Amino acid sequence: MRHSIIAGTPEILSGAFIYGSKEAPFYFPLHQHETNAEIFLILEGEGEFRVDGRRYRGKAGNLLMYNRGIWHEERSTSDKFAAVYVAYSGLRLQGMPADFLSGSAQAAMLELHEHFLPIKKLFVEMIEEWNSPLPESADVANGLLRALTGRLVRLLHYTAEDLVKKRPHKETVHLARRYMEENYPFDVTLETLANLTYTNPYHFIHVFKAETGMSPIQYLIRYRIEVAKQYLESTRLPMAEIAEKVGYKSDTYFQNLFKKTTGMSPGQYRAASRA
């Protein structure tokens, strides 16, 4: 029997071609999707992308993966830009959250190299079928999506030997990150994370830092600050309330930590984001 980690197949929610130019560049502000994921393939030109707090410079032949719930921002930077995207739900990979195509420790952008042309062909045909009025076009499009995600799962989870060897550590880190992302408003301790991942605190810190480049506490602070930025940009909530929403009982401590992390106070950040 052939091995597969795909436990649930996805279905398309929407999909389209995207274009940008020097006069009318493509831009989609920072946002997230709570109930679905997206795949974004650059066909022509270049762009800048922010995914889960990381920044990427993409070009033709690069594919970006926005897992469910992940914050992302997109903009074209070249005179001519073309891309294609699909939004989907229902994908389940063993050991990963729903609609997660890539692991949290993996980069959100994939350089396709020799795989670009066959994946481009699948992607373009899928979107053309999805937007076609012909009979059975939705079924054909969803079949092509399953072929596309199957190809990408191969590239992401089977091709690199070192990735296979490190997978247990990556799963440990992913579980801890997911817990922090879901429980950041509350008290998250090192002991809780170590117990959650069935490791001792010292080993857990070592594994987490080796995989992410930062300690668990540094990651938690970074995530809380990112959430605070969303509140500062999109609401008029007072600082004390934002501090409490992201897990800090002391407004003063929150404001000092925000400035230490970002280089500006929360008030300065709010003003700059609305300038």
Rank of each mutant, 00 (worst) to 15 (best):
S250A: 11
A160W: 03
R236K: 11
Q218E: 02
L63M: 03
G263T: 03
K229P: 10
S4W: 06
K170M: 10
E226Y: 00
L101I: 12
S215T: 00
Y85K: 07
A16L: 07
S137V: 08
H31Q: 08
E46I: 07
K59N: 15
V188D: 04
G53E: 02
T261I: 02
R55N: 13
I6V: 04
L122M: 10
S21P: 05
F254D: 01
G213C: 06
F186N: 04
R75K: 13
F40M: 13
A243E: 06
V227R: 15
V207M: 05
K166D: 11
I225F: 14
L220Y: 05
S273E: 12
H174P: 00
N67Q: 08
A98E: 15
M180C: 13
L41T: 14
A105E: 10
K249R: 11
A176R: 10
L101R: 03
Y56R: 02
P133T: 09
L122A: 12
E161R: 12
I42N: 13
L257H: 00
G150L: 11
S234A: 12
L148V: 09
L145K: 06
Y56H: 10
E171C: 03
A98R: 14
H174S: 11
S234C: 08
G61Q: 00
Y198Q: 06
D79I: 04
I39R: 09
G8L: 03
L117E: 13
H206P: 01
R274H: 12
Q255W: 05
I5L: 00
N67D: 09
D251V: 13
K121G: 10
E38R: 08
D99W: 02
Q94C: 10
F26R: 14
H169R: 04
A176F: 07
A240F: 08
I6D: 07
L175W: 04
T212E: 01
S104L: 08
G61H: 00
